[in-house]
Protein backbone atom coordinates (compact mmCIF):
# COMPACT_ATOMS: atom_id res chain seq x y z
CA UNK A 1 0.00 0.00 0.00
CA UNK A 2 2.96 2.27 0.58
CA UNK A 3 4.17 1.71 -2.93
CA UNK A 4 0.80 2.37 -4.49
CA UNK A 5 0.40 5.64 -2.65
CA UNK A 6 3.28 7.17 -4.57
CA UNK A 7 2.95 8.90 -7.87
CA UNK A 8 4.05 6.72 -10.78
CA UNK A 9 6.41 9.39 -12.02
CA UNK A 10 9.06 8.76 -9.39
CA UNK A 11 10.00 5.50 -10.95
CA UNK A 12 13.33 4.88 -9.20
CA UNK A 13 11.87 5.32 -5.78
CA UNK A 14 8.85 3.37 -6.85
CA UNK A 15 10.97 0.47 -8.00
CA UNK A 16 12.93 0.58 -4.79
CA UNK A 17 9.75 0.58 -2.73
CA UNK A 18 8.11 -2.24 -4.60
CA UNK A 19 11.33 -4.23 -4.41
CA UNK A 20 11.44 -3.82 -0.66
CA UNK A 21 7.68 -3.49 -0.14
CA UNK A 22 7.26 -6.04 2.57
CA UNK A 23 10.35 -4.90 4.41
CA UNK A 24 8.95 -1.39 4.48
CA UNK A 25 5.56 -2.57 5.73
CA UNK A 26 7.30 -4.40 8.56
CA UNK A 27 9.59 -1.46 9.32
CA UNK A 28 6.64 0.94 9.44
CA UNK A 29 4.78 -1.46 11.71
CA UNK A 30 7.74 -1.43 14.09
CA UNK A 31 7.90 2.36 14.05
CA UNK A 32 4.13 2.67 14.50
CA UNK A 33 4.27 0.24 17.40
CA UNK A 34 7.02 2.21 19.11
CA UNK A 35 5.16 5.49 18.63
CA UNK A 36 1.77 4.24 19.81
CA UNK A 37 2.94 2.12 22.72
CA UNK A 38 5.52 4.72 23.72
CA UNK A 39 2.79 7.36 23.85
CA UNK A 40 0.67 5.18 26.10
CA UNK A 41 3.50 4.07 28.37
CA UNK A 42 6.72 6.00 27.96
CA UNK A 43 8.71 3.27 29.70
CA UNK A 44 8.35 1.21 26.53
CA UNK A 45 10.87 3.56 24.94
CA UNK A 46 13.36 3.37 27.79
CA UNK A 47 16.77 2.23 26.65
CA UNK A 48 16.62 -0.82 28.92
CA UNK A 49 13.43 -2.01 27.30
CA UNK A 50 14.62 -1.42 23.75
CA UNK A 51 17.80 -3.14 24.73
CA UNK A 52 16.01 -6.22 25.99
CA UNK A 53 13.73 -6.39 22.97
CA UNK A 54 16.73 -6.44 20.63
CA UNK A 55 19.23 -8.39 22.68
CA UNK A 56 16.77 -10.97 23.97
CA UNK A 57 15.56 -11.91 20.51
CA UNK A 58 18.63 -11.44 18.33
CA UNK A 59 19.19 -15.19 18.15
CA UNK A 60 15.76 -15.60 16.54
CA UNK A 61 16.64 -13.00 13.90
CA UNK A 62 19.94 -14.75 13.19
CA UNK A 63 18.31 -18.15 12.84
CA UNK A 64 15.74 -16.52 10.56
CA UNK A 65 18.53 -15.33 8.23
CA UNK A 66 19.55 -18.92 7.55
CA UNK A 67 15.94 -20.01 7.35
CA UNK A 68 15.22 -17.30 4.80
CA UNK A 69 18.00 -18.59 2.56
CA UNK A 70 16.59 -22.11 2.82
CA UNK A 71 13.11 -20.87 1.95
CA UNK A 72 14.43 -18.69 -0.89
CA UNK A 73 16.02 -21.83 -2.30
CA UNK A 74 12.56 -23.42 -2.25
CA UNK A 75 12.99 -25.55 0.85
CA UNK A 76 12.10 -25.45 4.53
CA UNK A 77 13.56 -26.63 7.82
CA UNK A 78 11.26 -27.49 10.71
CA UNK A 79 14.10 -28.90 12.85
CA UNK A 80 15.88 -25.62 13.53
CA UNK A 81 14.49 -25.25 17.05
CA UNK A 82 15.67 -28.73 18.00
CA UNK A 83 19.07 -28.04 16.43
CA UNK A 84 19.47 -24.84 18.47
CA UNK A 85 18.63 -26.78 21.63
CA UNK A 86 21.25 -29.41 20.78
CA UNK A 87 23.89 -26.78 19.97
CA UNK A 88 23.29 -24.96 23.23
CA UNK A 89 23.66 -28.20 25.13
CA UNK A 90 26.88 -29.21 23.36
CA UNK A 91 28.35 -25.75 23.86
CA UNK A 92 27.46 -25.71 27.54
CA UNK A 93 28.81 -29.22 28.10
CA UNK A 94 32.12 -28.36 26.44
CA UNK A 95 32.38 -25.11 28.40
CA UNK A 96 31.90 -26.76 31.79
CA UNK A 97 34.16 -29.72 30.99
CA UNK A 98 37.16 -27.45 30.81
CA UNK A 99 37.70 -27.15 27.07
CA UNK A 100 39.01 -23.79 25.88
CA UNK A 101 36.22 -21.31 25.33
CA UNK A 102 36.86 -21.00 21.59
CA UNK A 103 36.34 -24.75 21.31
CA UNK A 104 33.04 -24.47 23.14
CA UNK A 105 32.01 -21.76 20.69
CA UNK A 106 33.17 -23.28 17.41
CA UNK A 107 32.68 -27.04 17.74
CA UNK A 108 28.88 -26.78 18.11
CA UNK A 109 28.74 -24.49 15.08
CA UNK A 110 30.74 -27.00 13.04
CA UNK A 111 28.39 -29.71 14.28
CA UNK A 112 25.38 -27.68 13.12
CA UNK A 113 26.97 -27.14 9.71
CA UNK A 114 27.68 -30.85 9.40
CA UNK A 115 24.16 -31.90 10.40
CA UNK A 116 22.54 -29.48 8.00
CA UNK A 117 24.94 -30.31 5.20
CA UNK A 118 23.79 -33.90 5.71
CA UNK A 119 20.18 -32.79 5.53
CA UNK A 120 21.00 -30.78 2.42
CA UNK A 121 22.67 -33.78 0.77
CA UNK A 122 19.62 -35.95 1.42
CA UNK A 123 17.33 -33.26 0.09
CA UNK A 124 19.45 -32.52 -2.97
CA UNK A 125 20.28 -36.01 -4.16
CA UNK A 126 17.33 -38.15 -3.08
CA UNK A 127 14.72 -35.51 -3.87
CA UNK A 128 12.93 -36.22 -0.59
CA UNK A 129 11.03 -33.05 0.25
CA UNK A 130 12.90 -31.01 2.83
CA UNK A 131 9.89 -30.88 5.13
CA UNK A 132 10.00 -34.68 5.40
CA UNK A 133 13.73 -34.87 6.06
CA UNK A 134 13.59 -32.11 8.63
CA UNK A 135 10.46 -33.51 10.30
CA UNK A 136 12.44 -36.71 10.73
CA UNK A 137 15.48 -34.74 11.87
CA UNK A 138 13.31 -32.93 14.43
CA UNK A 139 12.35 -36.28 15.98
CA UNK A 140 15.91 -37.59 15.92
CA UNK A 141 17.47 -34.48 17.48
CA UNK A 142 14.76 -34.10 20.09
CA UNK A 143 14.67 -37.73 21.15
CA UNK A 144 18.45 -37.95 21.05
CA UNK A 145 18.88 -34.86 23.20
CA UNK A 146 16.55 -36.16 25.88
CA UNK A 147 18.16 -39.60 25.83
CA UNK A 148 21.62 -38.07 26.16
CA UNK A 149 21.01 -35.43 28.82
CA UNK A 150 17.78 -36.44 30.56
CA UNK A 151 17.18 -32.69 30.74
CA UNK A 152 19.92 -32.13 33.29
CA UNK A 153 20.55 -28.38 33.50
CA UNK A 154 24.03 -27.10 32.81
CA UNK A 155 25.08 -24.44 35.29
CA UNK A 156 28.32 -22.93 36.63
CA UNK A 157 29.18 -21.75 33.14
CA UNK A 158 32.48 -19.84 33.01
CA UNK A 159 31.83 -16.07 32.74
CA UNK A 160 34.10 -15.69 29.69
CA UNK A 161 31.87 -18.18 27.86
CA UNK A 162 28.88 -15.83 28.03
CA UNK A 163 29.39 -14.13 24.70
CA UNK A 164 25.78 -12.88 24.47
CA UNK A 165 26.19 -10.94 27.71
CA UNK A 166 29.29 -9.07 26.54
CA UNK A 167 28.73 -5.45 25.59
CA UNK A 168 31.32 -4.08 23.21
CA UNK A 169 30.86 -0.26 22.99
CA UNK A 170 27.89 -0.49 25.31
CA UNK A 171 25.72 -2.48 22.98
CA UNK A 172 25.06 -6.18 23.64
CA UNK A 173 27.12 -8.42 21.41
CA UNK A 174 23.99 -10.29 20.31
CA UNK A 175 22.80 -7.09 18.65
CA UNK A 176 26.19 -6.59 16.96
CA UNK A 177 25.95 -10.14 15.63
CA UNK A 178 22.41 -9.60 14.39
CA UNK A 179 23.23 -6.39 12.55
CA UNK A 180 26.53 -7.60 11.12
CA UNK A 181 25.21 -10.96 9.97
CA UNK A 182 22.14 -9.37 8.40
CA UNK A 183 24.30 -6.97 6.40
CA UNK A 184 26.82 -9.62 5.39
CA UNK A 185 24.09 -12.07 4.41
CA UNK A 186 22.18 -9.57 2.32
CA UNK A 187 25.34 -8.42 0.52
CA UNK A 188 26.22 -12.07 0.00
CA UNK A 189 22.81 -12.90 -1.45
CA UNK A 190 22.87 -9.88 -3.74
CA UNK A 191 26.40 -9.68 -5.01
CA UNK A 192 27.95 -13.15 -5.06
CA UNK A 193 27.36 -15.79 -7.71
CA UNK A 194 26.44 -18.30 -5.08
CA UNK A 195 23.97 -15.89 -3.49
CA UNK A 196 22.26 -15.25 -6.80
CA UNK A 197 22.20 -18.95 -7.60
CA UNK A 198 20.10 -19.48 -4.46
CA UNK A 199 17.38 -17.28 -5.94
CA UNK A 200 17.72 -19.02 -9.28
CA UNK A 201 17.33 -22.48 -7.80
CA UNK A 202 14.38 -21.41 -5.71
CA UNK A 203 12.72 -19.68 -8.64
CA UNK A 204 13.05 -22.47 -11.16
CA UNK A 205 15.39 -25.35 -10.66
CA UNK A 206 15.49 -26.58 -14.23
CA UNK A 207 16.03 -23.10 -15.59
CA UNK A 208 18.85 -22.67 -13.09
CA UNK A 209 20.41 -25.91 -14.27
CA UNK A 210 20.12 -24.77 -17.87
CA UNK A 211 21.91 -21.56 -16.88
CA UNK A 212 24.86 -23.58 -15.71
CA UNK A 213 24.12 -23.69 -11.98
CA UNK A 214 24.51 -26.94 -10.12
CA UNK A 215 21.27 -27.03 -8.11
CA UNK A 216 22.35 -29.95 -5.92
CA UNK A 217 25.49 -28.20 -4.80
CA UNK A 218 23.56 -24.99 -4.22
CA UNK A 219 21.02 -26.75 -2.01
CA UNK A 220 23.74 -28.42 0.06
CA UNK A 221 25.52 -25.09 0.36
CA UNK A 222 22.35 -23.34 1.46
CA UNK A 223 21.65 -25.89 4.15
CA UNK A 224 25.25 -25.73 5.36
CA UNK A 225 24.98 -21.94 5.56
CA UNK A 226 21.73 -22.30 7.41
CA UNK A 227 23.61 -24.58 9.81
CA UNK A 228 26.19 -21.84 10.31
CA UNK A 229 23.54 -19.28 11.21
CA UNK A 230 21.62 -21.74 13.39
CA UNK A 231 24.93 -22.53 15.09
CA UNK A 232 25.65 -18.88 15.87
CA UNK A 233 22.06 -18.44 17.04
CA UNK A 234 22.47 -21.49 19.25
CA UNK A 235 25.64 -20.11 20.85
CA UNK A 236 23.94 -16.78 21.57
CA UNK A 237 20.92 -18.64 22.92
CA UNK A 238 23.19 -20.71 25.16
CA UNK A 239 25.10 -17.77 26.56
CA UNK A 240 22.19 -15.48 27.34
CA UNK A 241 21.50 -16.87 30.81
CA UNK A 242 23.53 -18.51 33.55
CA UNK A 243 22.00 -21.93 32.94
CA UNK A 244 21.34 -24.05 29.87
CA UNK A 245 18.17 -26.09 29.97
CA UNK A 246 19.26 -28.98 27.70
CA UNK A 247 15.83 -29.14 26.10
CA UNK A 248 14.35 -28.21 22.80
CA UNK A 249 12.97 -24.66 23.05
CA UNK A 250 9.22 -25.04 22.42
CA UNK A 251 7.84 -23.75 19.11
CA UNK A 252 11.08 -22.00 18.19
CA UNK A 253 10.95 -23.38 14.64
CA UNK A 254 7.51 -21.82 14.15
CA UNK A 255 8.74 -18.45 15.37
CA UNK A 256 11.74 -18.57 13.05
CA UNK A 257 9.73 -19.66 10.03
CA UNK A 258 7.07 -17.04 10.74
CA UNK A 259 9.71 -14.33 10.98
CA UNK A 260 11.09 -15.36 7.59
CA UNK A 261 7.79 -15.45 5.78
CA UNK A 262 6.36 -12.32 7.37
CA UNK A 263 9.60 -10.61 6.44
CA UNK A 264 8.72 -11.10 2.82
CA UNK A 265 10.33 -14.39 1.90
CA UNK A 266 7.90 -16.15 -0.37
CA UNK A 267 7.23 -19.64 0.84
CA UNK A 268 7.19 -20.67 -2.81
CA UNK A 269 10.86 -19.79 -3.08
CA UNK A 270 12.81 -17.47 -5.33
CA UNK A 271 12.17 -14.14 -3.61
CA UNK A 272 12.79 -12.34 -0.37
CA UNK A 273 15.54 -10.65 1.58
CA UNK A 274 17.14 -11.31 4.94
CA UNK A 275 16.67 -7.69 5.98
CA UNK A 276 12.96 -8.42 5.98
CA UNK A 277 13.31 -11.49 8.16
CA UNK A 278 15.44 -9.66 10.69
CA UNK A 279 12.92 -6.82 10.80
CA UNK A 280 10.10 -9.32 11.24
CA UNK A 281 11.90 -11.03 14.11
CA UNK A 282 12.23 -7.62 15.76
CA UNK A 283 8.57 -6.86 15.04
CA UNK A 284 7.53 -10.05 16.85
CA UNK A 285 9.68 -9.23 19.80
CA UNK A 286 8.15 -5.74 19.88
CA UNK A 287 4.62 -7.12 19.68
CA UNK A 288 5.31 -9.57 22.49
CA UNK A 289 6.64 -6.80 24.68
CA UNK A 290 4.02 -4.24 23.60
CA UNK A 291 1.11 -6.50 24.48
CA UNK A 292 2.35 -6.65 28.05
CA UNK A 293 2.83 -2.89 28.13
CA UNK A 294 -0.66 -2.31 26.72
CA UNK A 295 -2.26 -4.37 29.50
CA UNK A 296 -3.78 -6.81 27.05
CA UNK A 297 -5.24 -9.50 29.26
CA UNK A 298 -2.76 -12.32 29.40
CA UNK A 299 -5.48 -14.76 28.39
CA UNK A 300 -6.00 -12.94 25.10
CA UNK A 301 -2.37 -12.37 24.31
CA UNK A 302 -1.97 -15.17 21.83
CA UNK A 303 -5.22 -14.34 20.05
CA UNK A 304 -4.06 -10.75 19.54
CA UNK A 305 -0.67 -11.97 18.32
CA UNK A 306 -2.35 -14.28 15.81
CA UNK A 307 -4.56 -11.46 14.63
CA UNK A 308 -1.59 -9.17 14.16
CA UNK A 309 0.26 -11.77 12.09
CA UNK A 310 -2.85 -12.19 10.00
CA UNK A 311 -3.22 -8.45 9.57
CA UNK A 312 0.42 -8.12 8.44
CA UNK A 313 -0.04 -10.90 5.92
CA UNK A 314 -3.27 -9.49 4.56
CA UNK A 315 -1.75 -6.03 4.28
CA UNK A 316 1.12 -7.52 2.30
CA UNK A 317 -1.27 -9.35 0.00
CA UNK A 318 -3.28 -6.18 -0.56
CA UNK A 319 -0.07 -4.30 -1.34
CA UNK A 320 1.08 -6.90 -3.85
CA UNK A 321 -2.28 -6.93 -5.51
CA UNK A 322 -2.26 -3.16 -5.97
CA UNK A 323 1.33 -3.24 -7.14
CA UNK A 324 0.32 -5.52 -10.01
Amino acid sequence: MTAAALSPGRSNLHRFLSGYGQEIVVLLSIVALFVVVGAINHRFLSDTNINSIFAGNAYIAIAAIGMSMVIIAGHIDVSVGALIGVIATIAGTLAVSGYPIWVAWTVPILFAIAVNAGVGTLVAYTRIPSIVVTLGMLSILKGGLISATAGEWISNLPPEFMIAQMRPFGIPSAVWFMVALTIIASLFLRYTDFGRSIYAVGGNMEAARAAGINPERTVIGVFALHGLFAGIAGILFATQLQVIQSTVPPNLELTVITASVIGGVSILGGTGTVIGSTLAAILFACIGSALIFLNVSAYWLRAVLGLMILATVLADMARRRRAK
Binding site: T258, Y299, L301, R302, A303, V304, G306, L307, I309, L310
Partner: peptide, 13 residues
Protein backbone atom coordinates in the same frame (compact mmCIF):
# COMPACT_ATOMS: atom_id res chain seq x y z
CA UNK B 1 0.40 -20.37 10.75
CA UNK B 2 -1.45 -17.19 11.66
CA UNK B 3 -4.71 -18.96 12.47
CA UNK B 4 -2.73 -21.54 14.47
CA UNK B 5 -1.91 -18.72 16.87
CA UNK B 6 -5.29 -17.02 16.50
CA UNK B 7 -7.52 -20.04 17.19
CA UNK B 8 -5.37 -21.24 20.06
CA UNK B 9 -5.46 -17.70 21.43
CA UNK B 10 -9.25 -17.57 21.14
CA UNK B 11 -9.49 -20.88 23.00
CA UNK B 12 -7.31 -19.49 25.78
CA UNK B 13 -9.12 -16.18 25.93
Amino acid sequence: LATLALYRGLAEG
